Simulated assay, not measured.
Amino acid sequence: MQNVYDFKVKKPNGEELSLKEYEGKPLIIVNTASKCGLTPQFKGLQELYEKYSDKDLEILGFPCDQFNNQEYDNIEKTTEFCQVNYGVNFPIFAKIDVNGSKADPLFTYLKEQKRGLLSKRIKWNFTKFLVDRNGQVVERYGPTIEPSKIEADLTKLL
Rank of each mutant, 00 (worst) to 15 (best):
M1Q: 11
Q2N: 14
N3T: 12
N3P: 05
V4G: 03
K8D: 11
K8Y: 07
V9Y: 04
K10A: 13
K11W: 11
K11G: 05
E15F: 08
E16H: 03
L17D: 05
S18V: 06
S18T: 09
K20Q: 15
K20G: 07
K20E: 15
E21Y: 11
E21P: 04
G24Y: 08
K25D: 07
P26C: 11
I29M: 09
I29T: 11
V30E: 04
V30I: 15
K35F: 07
K35C: 05
K35I: 06
C36I: 03
C36N: 10
P40V: 00
F42I: 01
K43A: 11
K43Y: 07
L45R: 00
L45K: 00
Q46N: 06
Q46L: 02
Q46V: 01
Y49Q: 01
Y49G: 00
E50M: 02
E50W: 01
S53G: 00
D54K: 12
D56Q: 13
E58L: 10
E58F: 10
E58C: 13
E58Y: 10
I59P: 00
I59A: 00
L60E: 08
G61I: 12
P63C: 08
Q66V: 07
F67K: 11
F67E: 13
N68L: 15
N69C: 12
N69Y: 13
Q70D: 09
Q70S: 04
E71R: 02
Y72T: 06
Y72W: 12
D73W: 06
D73R: 08
N74F: 08
I75P: 00
K77F: 11
T78F: 02
T78A: 10
T79G: 01
E80C: 11
F81K: 09
Q83M: 13
Q83F: 13
V84N: 14
N85E: 14
V88G: 02
N89C: 10
F90A: 03
P91V: 13
I92W: 08
I92E: 01
I92N: 02
K95W: 05
K95P: 06
I96A: 12
I96L: 09
D97H: 14
V98C: 05
N99K: 12
N99L: 10
G100W: 06
G100A: 09
A103S: 12
A103C: 08
L106Q: 03
L106F: 02
F107H: 06
L110D: 08
L110I: 10
L110M: 09
G116D: 12
G116K: 08
L118D: 10
L118M: 15
S119C: 15
K120T: 13
R121V: 14
I122R: 07
I122A: 06
I122L: 12
K123S: 14
K123N: 14
W124K: 08
W124H: 05
N125V: 08
F126K: 00
T127R: 04
K128H: 09
K128I: 09
F129N: 02
F129E: 07
L130D: 01
Q136T: 15
V138R: 15
T144R: 14
I145P: 04
E146T: 02
P147C: 01
S148C: 01
I150P: 00
E151W: 07
E151H: 07
D153E: 14
L154Q: 02
T155H: 03
T155E: 15
K156G: 03
L158R: 07
L158A: 11
